[in-house]
Nucleic acid binder design. Structure first.
Length: 497
RNA sequence: CGGGGCGUAGCGCAGUCCGGUAGCGCGUCUGGUUUGGGACCAGAAGGUCCCGGGUUCAAAUCCCGGCGCCCCGACCA
């Protein structure tokens, strides 16, 4: 019996399962370059759909796209003290501009031309605050130029010691928003607004429940005044930071001299924000919904939403079945559904089912001679369940099913998260929870970095966020879950990616 | 950067201990028969056994030295 590669079950080895799901869904592949992956067409289509939804939301909130250089003069990075310290350990540098032929064979055929050394090395952007604010300084003159609301879609390089497909790679794709405002409250409102945009996207498109909130001092972005983040709980009960939004204050404005003339004629530094989400979200999507049969993709982002699998025995049946299949395909396409008719002749229907399941297709329509005779198709949901659907009005029942699947995925992910969240635990209970099943632990926090470090040391858990009001427990803790001193804020703790 | 595992056909692996013509399954190609949950028969193609040295009549196998990948930890989106 022909058997495609099996996916390692989650219960056996979660990491292997994650890799298997990605490889068999053909989202990505390992590349010859250490720490770098190739995003394959199916994975890139998913990213494109994510981009489109997010970009529409950025535009709707007044942002414009632009593109800034990949290379940043090393001295730029040095201009903001905290920032450079945060990235110093993981930047790639361009130091030379030429190779030269040696006349030797093989790997020795070329060498770096020592004559081509740059006077000042260029940093391959690990993030673009410095180069963007250097430009903002040029563009901002008066309060009439503000706010300046920009975004860029690009790649980023951070030299990571240990990499994982989508979750942490040396090069990755992201979007970075950068804005300049006249006042601190405006910048704060922007940072909060974009956090909300991300939340909407992740909940409504990715069907991934998130907790929003503020990062502690130790977890905030290097160079920011405040960092806000979204945290999701994966199926192994580890937290994934799914996006960040920073109020940068005037730190970069001062470093790059981004000033404006006020209506009253004074000169002030602008207030900046930056915010970003990355291809890491694809890893989050995989680990939120997928199962031991492969990828489960929320319909709104599924590269293929419906796969039609025709079934026939004779040539005559094949003709009838394909004709109906083609008709259904056209009707669904007209209704805006991303649909594939799988008419391959070298695979039996069962093999096609497995393939589309591994690729995360939410809905499969099976059309055989019996269905054609009955004027129906069999609709099988990726999340389970198979039922006939009448051919007349098929587009309506398909889109309704996709909507139901989308909603059900969010609901079950949220239920799972809540089932793995604890509130009001004592210190021993907290330790037991983190060493055992793990998940989100809500508890009082004294605000001290020492407490945070001790907890990390003993349990590997960190403060993911100090949650926003809508995510806080009904009964706010009075004391620090760890040291017993008065609590300054409720915190959500978890082991994290 | 430490610990563990691994590197043999496109993919998954056996062979390595104990040196002796490089194999199996899947996939691929050709032809035929098939098709309601991973089809079958017949034929065929496909290999620097990770790389470099060494030992030997002879190395995938033994010795020395590299490189790479995956997993776990430390550091980070």
């Amino acid at each position: 019996m022909a058997q495609a590669q099996k996916i390692t079950p989650r219960a056996k080895d979660y990491s292997e399962w994650y890799n298997d799901v990605i490889m068999q869904a053909e989202l990505a592949d390992y590349s010859p370059v250490r720490g770098c992956m190739v995003i394959r067409p199916h994975g890139y289509r998913l990213w494109e759909l994510m981009q489109r939804a997010l970009d529409d939301m950025f535009k709707a909130t007044g942002h414009q796209n632009a593109y800034f250089p990949l290379f940043i003069p090393m001295s730029f990075l040095a201009k903001e003290a905290e920032h450079v310290e945060g990235f110093a350990k993981e930047v790639a540098l361009v130091t030379h501009t030429r190779l030269k032929a040696t006349g030797k064979a093989g790997a020795q055929a070329v060498m770096v031309d020592p004559e081509s050394a740059l006077d000042e090395p260029l940093v391959v952007r690990p993030t673009s605050e410095t180069i963007i604010y250097a430009m903002f300084a040029k563009w901002v003159q008066s309060y009439r130029d503000l706010p300046l609301l920009m975004n860029q879609w690009c790649n980023i390089v951070r030299w990571e010691l240990r990499t994982r497909l989508f979750l942490r790679t040396t090069e990755f794709l992201w979007q970075e928003g950068h804005t300049a405002h006249a006042t601190e409250p405006e910048a704060e409102a922007e940072a909060r607004q974009m956090l909300g945009v991300y939340r909407t996207f992740q909940e409504e498109w990715m069907a991934m429940p998130v907790i929003t909130g503020k990062k502690t001092e130790s977890e905030k972005f290097a160079g920011a005044l405040r960092t806000y983040a979204l945290e999701a709980l994966m199926q192994d009960n580890k937290a994934l930071q799914a996006g960040t939004s920073h109020n940068l204050g005037q730190n970069f404005a001062k470093a790059f001299n981004v000033q404006y003339q006020t209506a009253a004629g004074g000169l002030e530094y602008v207030w900046n924000t930056s915010w970003g989400v990355t291809t890491r979200m694809i890893g989050g999507l995989v680990m939120t919904h997928s199962d031991d049969n492969g990828l489960v993709c929320p319909p709104k982002l599924a590269p293929v939403q419906v796969a039609i699998v025709p079934i026939w025995k004779s040539e005559e049946e094949k003709g009838r079945v394909l004709e109906v299949g083609e008709g259904v395909k056209q009707e669904l396409a007209r209704a805006g559904v991303r649909v594939e008719l799988d008419a391959r002749e070298n695979l039996k229907p069962g093999a096609k089912y497995f393939e589309w399941e591994a690729k995360g297709v939410p809905l499969r329509l099976e059309i055989g001679p019996r269905d054609v005779a009955a004027g129906q198709v069999m609709a099988a949901r990726r999340t389970g369940g198979k039922a006939p659907a009448r051919l007349p009005g098929i587009a309506g029942s398909v889109t309704a099913a996709l909507d139901q699947i989308q909603a059900a995925l969010f609901r079950s992910a949220k239920d799972r998260r809540e089932a793995h969240s604890i509130r009001g635990a004592s210190k021993p209970q907290f330790i037991e929870f983190m060493k055992g099943p793990g998940g989100f632990a809500y508890g009082g926090f004294c605000g001290s970095g020492a407490c945070e470090a001790e907890i990390k040391q003993e349990t590997a858990a960190t403060v993911r966020v100090l949650p926003d009001p809508e995510f806080r427990s009904p009964d706010q803790p009075k004391t620090c879950m760890w040291c017993g001193k008065p609590s300054v804020a409720e915190a959500v703790w978890a082991q994290a990616y």
